[in-house]
């Protein structure tokens, strides 16, 4: 029964991936990709990695799909504006070399991966055992959080820095023509939905953050949920990103600043960079995570909100026929 389920799941995942690649219609590829994210979350579940499943569910279902739909809307609006035509997807056939090259490199990578699996070196130490051994010193009960925020917190610190740089670039590229989505805030359905949906989202975001210290969860997943709530509010027509622009900028950097401050201030006591005193490690980790959740939420939301609103909302895709 286990095997049958896993095989079916694998086949569905491959079908979905093929659907993304072989789709000439951009929107179909996007929807396929949303479905792919969901199936991937299920695969992570079957691989006993609920942390990854949680992240995939939050990012894949909540944010990637929205970003891509937004991008397709921009593209189609742009195309309609400039050429009076939709996507030119039935255009020239790709050159021969542009087909051979990807296939060739994919085969090479596949062979290399196969070799890496076949001749993998024996692990000198069993890392899971090592983590389990030193878990009591980390201040949290969940091994993944212990690794991310204590044993290997350097990686996490740099990840936050990368996210921050990404959003700074996005803000720099933003054209200076931000208008609120006109006339949208009157939509009664969206208003009703946001009144019912956003509060539970915020509560669940905080819960996931809190749960991170003893079970799957944590700052990134909580932040993604927070970001999804903000994206929803923006889509519903609330001009939240204009409410407090300077506050938003502080919030974006807050997580990184707090993380770095804690990481360096432990050095005053003569400890190495990024090692927390054991007695307060749990509290410090939770404090950092809470700040990170806030910042990650704002960062992910900013990546969405920095995109300009569509030039002219199109309804051209509504009646579009399958053209394959």
């Amino acid at each position: 029964m286990n095997l049958a389920f896993d095989v079916l799941l694998g086949i569905a995942l491959l079908l979905c991936a093929a659907g993304v690649f072989y789709s000439r219609d951009l929107f179909r590829a996007v929807v396929m990709f949303i479905a792919f994210g969901l199936l991937l979350a299920l695969v992570w579940v079957r691989l006993d990695a609920p942390d990854l499943a949680l992240a995939e569910a939050a990012i894949g279902a909540g944010l990637t799909g929205v970003l891509m739909i937004d991008a397709v809307a921009h593209l189609s609006a742009k195309n309609a504006h400039h050429q009076g035509a939709q996507f030119d997807q039935t255009g020239a056939r790709p050159q021969l070399w542009s087909r051979i090259l990807p296939v060739f490199s994919a085969v090479i990578i596949f062979i290399l991966l196969l070799g890496a699996i076949w001749w993998r070196p024996d692990a000198p130490v069993s890392l899971p055992d090592l983590v389990a051994e030193s878990l009591p010193e980390s201040g949290v009960e969940h091994p993944i959080t212990a690794v991310l925020l204590n044993f290997r917190s350097y990686d996490t610190l740099l990840e936050i820095a990368v996210l921050l740089v990404a959003v700074v670039v996005a803000m720099a590229l933003k054209p200076d023509t931000s208008e609120p989505e006109a006339g949208n805030s009157k939509d009664p359905i969206l208003h009703g939905l946001s009144a019912r949906l956003v509060p539970p989202m915020l509560v669940v975001g905080v819960y996931i953050l809190w749960a991170g210290s003893y079970m799957p969860g944590g700052a990134f997943q909580g932040g993604a949920i927070l970001a999804a709530a903000l994206v929803f509010l923006k889509l519903a027509g609330f001009g939240i990103e204009r409410l407090a622009d300077s506050l938003l900028r502080i919030g974006l950097a807050l997580g990184f600043i707090v993380f770095l401050t804690v990481a360096t201030s432990v050095m005053i006591g003569g400890r190495p960079f990024l090692t927390y005193p054991e007695s307060v490690a749990g509290e410090l980790i939770f404090f950092i995570e809470a700040m990170l959740t806030f910042s990650i939420g704002l960062i992910l939301f900013s990546l969405f909100s920095q995109a300009p609103p569509p030039v002219a909302p199109t309804s051209s895709l509504q009646g579009e026929q399958d053209e394959r």
Binding site: I34, P50, A57, A58, V66, I69, L190, L193, P310, P313
Partner: peptide, 23 residues
Amino acid sequence: DVALVLALLAVIAMVAFVKRMQG
């Protein structure tokens, strides 16, 4: 928890679709 997150967030893609692609 994963199911809870998925249930809460799945609707957002739909809202984006309605707002951005249907005029």
